[in-house]
Write a protein that binds this DNA or RNA. Structure first.
Length: 612
RNA sequence: GCCCCCGUAGCUCAAAAGGACAGAGCACCGGAUUUCUAAUCCGGUGGUUGCAGGUUCGAUUCCUGCCGGGGGUACCA
């Protein structure tokens, strides 16, 4: 039974009868939502306040009339009018009990909804160039992208995840040159530094050059990859060592490393899309031809330009440079066409802040190709059937994943000079663990810059949210173990780590009610997180449910009658069922952000110090 | 110049689609433990939500202007 929907429909029906007003109109939304404080009740409606002007009556009076009309509502034990005119719904014990049962029974599926079944959304994220190891900025993208995919799946979307591999072009050429340069260096070839001309920003350009077997080899310094990993690659390039071989070798090794890092970070992709394959298959050339044929391009200074200004861009953009090479955006547009062509209804991309300026360009290009669906077109499909009407969304959305600063002992961890690279994701994983890393990366809104406090992530205290949440789960597990030890439960009473036996709803008390109200918010949280494309809401849910539980269990310290394992079997079973439901909900929600739910917490202090 | 994001407690951040007294954590002060793992909890101090207008029954939230901070603005990717 879905109380939210049930109660909402009751409100709608009553208002229609009383005043012939359709409360489903967006201006009355949200019709029903969790109250600001769960002490008010299970769900609340502020609709009376929004009706005040239409009905020319004080909100409280409207609320009272509406409540009188509602009469007895299924699942509710009481409906109050409070404050300026809020209507508070208080669930009956049977309804609370069924929530407890649902969480225990559904486990990993708890909080899932199916209203969006059939909508196919493709999440592309991370997509780091295979020219170096993943660093923490990629880590944040990966954590958010993967969590978002899990959340969308839980919210009922059919979800795909992709990593776009820039495995050809300038970057790979520069990678190859960098490796070859190191290779020559290792062989003792002397390089000289020359200042020649200016770079694009008007500064003197420095080049490294050498004569090798009578031929000149040179590379502009700013294009060099200088990390130590380049030297390692240079040592390992198989013969014959050519520029192309170096690029391909480096790319393949680094891509394999990226895949391994992501796998260890619990980030899975359904598909790795190769730019090289796309170009080889002719998709990019076809795109340019198609645009030309439709008269959407022009030629100037030997380059092919897109008439993007006519479609809302700030400038016309180059598709094919005068040297015949594509700009970065041309294969990128082709790739997005490809994604739509493979049947996805909606594309969500996660990009770094340095790509911010390209959002508009991509939107415009898709619009020119007739692939972009404007908000109103999407709205009909998405709104229908959902409990919370959607903000109309385009079928192409970009999330800019903001910068992430690493802090250690209150100081920013700067770029490692010797390595000439940022702190790698691998190093971060090894230092703070996958759970803490993923939780911290997802904790803040995607478009807010994040300060990642490594000292805090390692601390095993309440101020570290990931430990706080995991500890709540482990504490429940501990109580359940205790119940077995004391002979109060048998192993056969358990299913998936929770007490699966029956309990009497009448035994539920005020403390459990509060706990269950917090727990019941998962479905709504997932719905909202999917709607807003914001997995940080899952962290907020986890933290507040964990806090509610920590409060609940600690209350039993002062007052033994509030303990879970009390003598009264009826109360005890009710409490075991309630906390088991919380345990299941915590585990499910942690799963949505890729964090493990431990059965017991082991103190770091008890373990031998890991020396590096 | 233009575009985007952000200004909330001393610090880091919340505030659900415009609603209940703007909430947490840290820090500071004071309490609770013969434990269901205190890795916890409770209480207290702390706010003109950058400034000025506007819309509204109601604004941290929406609109306008200003001040301050960050990012972006390639025939690089």
């Amino acid at each position: 039974m879905d109380l939210e929907r049930l109660w909402r429909d009751t409100l709608v029906a009553s208002a229609a009868e009383l005043w012939k007003i359709d409360l489903l109109h967006p201006r009355f939304a949200p019709l029903i939502e969790p109250p600001s404080d769960f002490r008010f009740g299970d769900l609340a409606s502020g609709v009376a306040m929004r009706l005040a002007r239409d009905l020319k009556k004080p909100p409280r009076k409207i609320a009272e009339e509406l409540v009188a009309k509602l009469g007895d509502v299924p699942g509710a034990s009481r409906i109050d009018v409070a404050g300026a005119g809020f209507i508070n719904f208080i669930a009956g014990k049977a309804a609370l009990a069924s929530a407890v049962d649902a969480a225990r029974r559904e486990g990993p599926s708890y909080g899932r909804s199916d209203v969006r079944r059939g909508c196919r959304v493709l999440v592309e994220h991370t997509s780091a160039n295979p020219t170096g190891p993943l660093h923490i900025a990629h880590g944040r993208q990966a954590a958010i992208g993967d969590s978002l995919a899990r959340v969308l799946r839980h919210a009922g979307f059919t979800v795909g995840t992709e990593f776009y591999v820039n495995d050809t072009g300038r970057q790979i050429e520069n990678l190859g040159k960098s490796i070859l340069w190191r290779r020559y260096e290792l062989q003792g070839t002397p390089f000289r530094r020359e200042i020649r001309g200016v770079d694009d920003e008007g500064r003197p350009a420095a080049w490294l050059a050498a004569e090798i077997n009578g031929a000149r080899f040179e590379i502009e310094e700013r294009n060099l990859y200088r990390g130590d990993y380049i030297i390692e690659l240079a040592k390992r390039v198989p013969e014959p060592v050519t520029l192309g071989a170096c690029g391909r070798f480096g790319r393949d090794v680094l891509l394999a490393e990226i895949r391994r890092d992501l796998e260890d970070f619990r980030v899975a992709f359904d598909r790795w899309s190769s730019q090289e394959a796309l170009e080889r298959g002719g998709a990019v050339a076809d795109l340019v031809e198609k645009l030309k044929a439709r008269g959407l391009t022009f030629e100037k200074d030997g380059a092919v330009w897109l008439l993007s200004r006519d479609y809302g861009d700030t400038d016309d953009k180059v598709l094919v440079k005068k040297d015949g090479q594509y700009t970065y955006r041309t294969p990128d547009i082709a790739y997005h066409c490809d994604k739509f062509g493979r049947g996805w209804d909606r594309l969500v991309d996660l990009w770094g802040p340095d790509h911010h300026a390209h959002v508009l360009g991509m939107r415009v290009a898709l619009k020119m190709l007739g692939l972009l669906k404007e908000p109103d077109v999407m709205a009909g499909k998405e709104v229908s059937g959902t409990l919370v009407p959607s903000t109309p969304a385009e079928n192409f959305q970009v999330l800019i994943v903001q910068h992430c600063r690493l802090l250690k002992d209150g100081q920013e961890v700067k770029m490692g000079k010797r390595l000439a690279s940022y702190v790698t994701l691998r190093e971060l994983m090894e230092e703070v663990g996958v759970d803490a890393a993923r939780y911290f990366f997802v904790m803040r809104k995607t478009d807010s810059p994040l300060d990642f406090d490594m000292t805090l992530a390692l601390r095993q205290e309440a101020d570290n949210p990931v430990y706080y949440v995991q500890y709540a789960h482990a504490r429940i597990a501990s109580v359940l173990r205790k119940a077995v030890d004391k002979g109060l439960l048998r192993p056969s009473d358990f299913k998936e780590g929770v007490y699966a036996g029956p309990f009497e709803a009448d035994a539920l008390g005020a403390e459990e009610t509060l706990l269950i109200r917090h727990m019941s918010g998962l479905r709504r949280t997932v719905d909202r997180a999917a709607q807003a494309l914001d997995p940080s809401l899952v962290c907020a849910y986890l933290y507040s449910l964990a806090a509610a539980y920590q409060f609940y269990q600690t209350a039993g310290k002062k007052d033994p009658s509030k303990r879970i394992l009390v003598d009264d079997e009826r109360v005890r079973r009710m409490r075991l069922a309630s906390v088991s439901a919380v345990k299941a909900a915590l585990k499910t929600a942690m799963g949505l952000i890729g964090v493990e739910a431990p059965e017991r917490m082991e103190s770091v202090a008890a373990e031998p110090e890991a020396e590096s």
